[in-house]
Design a protein around this nucleic acid. Structure first.
Lengths: 220, 220, 220, 220
DNA sequence: GATGAATGAGGCTTCATTCAT
DNA sequence: CATGAATGAAGCCTCATTCAT
């Protein structure tokens, strides 16, 4: 889950501080959960699988997490935190709003290239989980991401960089959605995206779509 | 799940022919499945819930469907069929590619307004389902939808209506993705979308995003 | 669990009406639960054991009872109902208060002779269960039993049959307690109580204790 | 768990000698076990709870006790030892058998007033424990208590103080049973017993019941 | 002695599926 | 067609016990 390295801008490593406190095995469990979760989805993800994948005993999962929901909530939170930190770092960095949006797209594709499972969790499982989860912190984190992107859009509109007649929130959702389904298509195999050059192409495509749309004619 | 009625174009009713054969209760079960499925997701959707929701006896579900997977596969198929038929009808109708894409967006938003649960199933459940399903006809149907939209894009490119440098498949995925997450945001409440005028605004926003992107500057 | 047949008075069969509604297997489960519960106590009583003992499938227990607590609560309720109905029948029958108390003692010993496990459940598990249960209907039923006996005592006091200076509630608790621990001693083997003549002796002993105490001297 | 201080006779402090050897934390664990055990019963009593209640580390419990059974067996033994020592001291002291029985009742009520949880353990948990325990020293200790009281009764019969036609063992069980359920009723709240004067009343009631029974008429 | 992380068997509960009526 | 009782495998969670530090 490295930062993007794409010749334009390289967002900082946005990993949550691996607090010296955090036990190694807790982290192992969390990582394992990401993989299993990504592969089987929320309900298909069995604690036994996670434990096995993490190489720890069944019971240890419950030493560190109250129950399955809390574990998966943690997975969500962590993944979103990484993504949100990246967005925030990008937003606070130099460059125009357009460039920021482009960087976000590139970052997402880069992360996908490195650890597709993380992206699957990040993008495919949101809002697809039982209400318990949706009611929790996950929903808020999701909204935070949208809000951050919307903030960038708003700034771009103020600075004359982006279309002023677009609703920032809808725009943010649209951009993230385009990103998501494109990556989904890659995950599913509809689109090539694994090789280095494919990834570069994907980035360009999504950025192009988000910034310029499909029409050849200027709006008006 | 009526066609859109939006002053521009009204796609035909794309419901699968309610073959005189189909028993009323089978249909009731299918409808109930859509609702429950949409509300609880694949694994959260219990046969008992569907039966209760449909107002039929437990065992009857197994009279009409071999098992849970087949039931949900049917739900998918039916929903996608409706959507695909609509896309196909639009694609075969008069108008430029741009107009077709716009119509597709409007149709989706209209359907969402009428039966959000159908949209949830349609859009949110695709990638979450166990592999059994993904390997089945569902995946193909999903790909069919993408392919149809990609076809429209391709035609638009030939006719000089749409940007020629865009990958049609990625473009199709992006458009559907933007559509999806915008509606998701509406479902989740991030964006207003329930009232008539909100729906109209959503349509315009998504269409604008898909056709013109966010940038004020023409690409070049 | 027949009525007593002891030459003095024969209380009516106080079984709860075997409502034509009640499924046979539900009853089988309940009976099995009594036995297993009595043998292993609340926590030692595994659902699997009950199911096996009842000769039904594991899951059927959950068809008829929401969960383990509800099952055991039902066991309690049923047992207490039987006992309370007997007490009530005795209390409403002819005879002095002293005779009623004696009948209650005899009834208890008789039931014990017939189905010791029922008595174990009835007497040994009360107030020894997790708070969930104690908070439930069980506690109230227990109090009902005490109250009924206290009522008999009160009447005896009015009619000059029983000591007027005794607190009816404490007296009722004492009587039931003497009954309980005597039967417990029988259950545990401290006291002979299985054979017919042993049972008769037990009855006489307890009745004697409850009515006349141990002292040779009249209280003064 | 002090001796009774009730104006009539004050049994000696029957605590087991706190051998200078016994580590302070071992004692803390034992005391904590009494409380937790009393509150939750055998199976509801988790080692973790005991450790927390005692304010010691999880593993330390296993440093002092081989396993859960041994811990609880120790609790039982200690509690019974206290009670049995008290009975023995009373039995060996001066006074008639009637007075001895009365003293035992008063002692029990006094202990209850001071530490209800100890009484709960003492009285309520005997017959509920898994067979392992019942087979162990606990059962014997319980029988010892009954035997001691029965011995007092026997002496009273020899000395013409108590009814000669009563079975000493049944009488002992009855007396202890009356005591138990009366205190249970107090624990459960059916009867007032917390205040000083309530306790005094309880004592008088139970003693009256045990010695004179409920009947106004002399037996015969 | 003292700590608490680590282990894993055991029990409760759910729910897809079958089947007799 | 329709019903719902019956089945049992599968997964979550607890908690006694061990062990390295």
């Amino acid at each position: 889950m490295p930062g993007a390295r794409n010749g334009k801008r390289s967002p900082p490593r946005p990993e949550p501080a691996p607090s010296a406190e955090e036990p190694e095995k807790r982290r192992a469990i969390l990582h394992a959960a990401v993989r299993v979760f990504a592969e089987k989805g929320y309900h298909g993800c069995r604690i036994a699988d996670v434990a096995k994948q993490a190489g720890v005993a069944y019971g240890l999962v419950y030493h560190y997490f109250r129950n399955k929901d809390e574990l998966l909530e943690s997975v969500f939170a962590e993944q979103w935190t990484i993504f949100i930190n990246a967005i925030r770092a990008i937003a606070e960095g130099p460059g125009s709003a357009s460039e920021h949006l482009a960087s976000i797209c590139r970052f997402a594709v880069d992360v996908y290239k490195t650890s597709p499972s993380a992206v699957r969790v990040l993008l495919l499982e949101v809002a697809r989980t039982p209400n318990v989860l949706r009611a929790g912190s996950t929903a808020q984190t999701f909204q935070t991401a949208v809000a951050l992107v919307a903030g960038i859009v708003r700034r771009g509109q103020r600075e004359g960089d982006l279309r002023g007649d677009a609703d920032p929130t809808v725009a943010a959702a649209s951009l993230l959605g385009a990103l998501e389904l494109t990556l989904t298509a890659a995950v599913v195999g509809l689109v090539e995206g694994a090789r280095e050059e494919d990834a570069e192409r994907l980035k360009a495509e999504v950025v192009g779509f988000a910034l310029h749309g499909l029409s050849v004619r200027p709006r008006g």
